[in-house]
Amino acid sequence: MRTRPVLIYDGDCAFCTSSVRFAERHIRPRCEITPWQFAELDSFGATRERAEYELLWVTPSGAIHGGAQAVAKLLLSAGRGWAVPGALLTLPPLRQLAHGVYRLIANNRERMPGGTPACALPADRRPQI
């Protein structure tokens, strides 16, 4: 049984990887962090399709939060000043706004700082490094 939450992200996406590295250095969430490409997704109750679509936060009990709510859980786990924006992201109407902003960014991540054209490709069509 897991004792810590797990953050699962797209390790082939440069923007996603840069964002996670920023979170590790500056936000310091209390969780394990792994790219979906190296995670046993079945053991988390997640699918490859969902992991390609959005950031995932898996609680020790197995609940899965995706996208903006995964970001909210990450911020909440860090405590300190980060918990306030994390809590705000869980409240309507900010929750719906956060979801829209997350989808806008996720759908255009190849255009974001640190993104590459490979970020726009489905995982099975990305160049292998």
Rank of each mutant, 00 (worst) to 15 (best):
A68V: 12
F44C: 02
A39F: 11
S18E: 09
W82V: 12
C13R: 04
G79D: 09
A70L: 06
L74W: 02
I27N: 00
S18I: 04
L55P: 00
A23L: 14
L88S: 07
G81L: 10
R50V: 15
I33K: 04
L76I: 15
A39M: 09
V71M: 10
G81T: 05
A14R: 02
L41P: 06
T34P: 01
P93L: 10
E49W: 09
P35H: 04
G67L: 12
G100V: 11
V71I: 15
L74F: 04
W82C: 08
A63S: 10
E49A: 12
C16H: 02
H26I: 12
Q96G: 04
R80D: 13
I33Y: 04
S61P: 06
L89R: 03
C31H: 03
R30M: 08
P29F: 12
R48W: 09
P60K: 01
L88Y: 08
P93R: 12
S43I: 10
A46T: 06
G45E: 10
L56N: 01
E54N: 06
A63E: 15
R48P: 10
E24W: 01
V20H: 01
E32R: 06
L56Q: 01
L91D: 06
R103V: 15
A98F: 06
E52T: 10
L41Q: 04
L76C: 15
T90E: 11
P92E: 05
C16V: 07
Y102V: 06
S77E: 04
S43V: 12
E24T: 13
H65K: 05
P93V: 15
R95I: 04
L74K: 00
L97I: 15
P35E: 09
L55Q: 00
L91S: 03
K73R: 13
